[in-house]
Design a protein around this nucleic acid. Structure first.
Lengths: 180, 180
DNA sequence: GGAGAAGCGTCAACAATGCTGACCAAACAA
DNA sequence: TTGTTTGGTCAGCATTGTTGACGCTTCTCC
């Protein structure tokens, strides 16, 4: 249970402390270590609710991603989805095809480009997505309430900063598609 | 590329908009959808740097977690680590044993309880951990600088809120062990 | 001192989700 | 017409999680 062990007390603080040299750098290091911890624990618990729900339906996190993003921008192409998820079409296919067969997602041939398959959620798919969303809504709202509006704004700014260029572009397109 | 597809424009906005009823709820929904997106893209890109580095050494994210947490609280027991990671000992064993054999991590029998194996990083392990840390340091510092100090504080508050009770306790112990 | 519990390791099997490489078909574009 | 793009599929493999079942050493309690 992370009780202090005998071996620890004898050490000259942490190895980091020596390497840091200045107190400023040391503080900065502690800050960043904390960020690593927060992202690990936070992301894990953020996804825990949906994961439990999905497990009952023999689905995984990958299915949730498809439901989320297709629900967010209905009519998107397979290529769009691949771009957003940054995975191969083989990986996507293994998740997407069963979801189409089980009636969670529908495909429609594109009207301007018949090669494209435009993806949307069926009622069944939208229903499941909403249940998963509700899970996370509760959880995130709790965190938002506890932290307050100013913190939420800061959270968003930092998370945006943690995204790469590609993801920022992807997100902008998504937000436009969601209700441009 | 998420260009507006013909099918989309004909739809009565999004299904969400109808379900929402009030404008307030609708705005709240958009906020939470954004949170989902930010966490997905942000976490993915936050881990992308280390992932690339690890791949060259035939390691994965699980190895990074071990390096990170053992480095954070040297002398922790196997049980501690299992508690932090929330995985089974079999899953951990498959990652940890090779890391011990390859000289990244050392085990020492506990002095008060000889059943325990106290884990620490070797110099080799600490070196690799530092390289991985540097990757993320750059990335997080960039995000912190862009967002500003107030945003960083907000980010931390929200991330803490996204953690469950267990994770909060785990984090407290970690912070104490890191330099109590 | 002996019984049971706790901490750790390990074997085997399985599932989810990534990856590469190789092909194929339909539709578009030059 | 020819070449490219979009999407689908098969086969194989790696990582990382899961259960279930044992075994060994050590601690704790009666």
């Amino acid at each position: 249970m992370l009780t202090k062990q005998p071996g620890m007390a004898a050490m000259p603080a942490t190895p980091r402390e020596q390497a840091a040299g200045s107190n400023l750098l040391f503080l900065r290091e502690a800050e960043l270590r904390l960020a690593q911890d927060l992202l690990f624990f936070g992301y894990r618990d953020f996804t825990a609710g949906p994961d439990r729900l999905l497990a009952e339906l023999n689905m995984g996190r990958a299915h949730h991603r498809v439901l989320h993003f297709v629900g967010r921008a209905p009519g998107m192409t397979v290529g769009d989805l691949l771009g957003i998820l940054s995975i191969t079409k083989q990986s996507l296919g293994r998740v997407l095809q069963p979801m189409i067969e089980d009636g969670y997602v529908t495909q429609a041939a594109g009207r301007v480009d018949k090669r494209q398959r435009l993806l949307s959620l069926t009622e069944k798919g939208a229903g499941l997505e909403r249940r998963l969303y509700d899970c996370q809504r509760e959880w995130v709202m709790r965190a938002y309430r506890e932290a307050g509006p100013a913190a939420v704004e800061g959270f968003r700014r930092v998370m945006r900063g943690l995204m790469g260029e590609d993801a920022r572009a992807e997100l902008e397109r998504l937000e436009r598609a969601a209700q441009g």
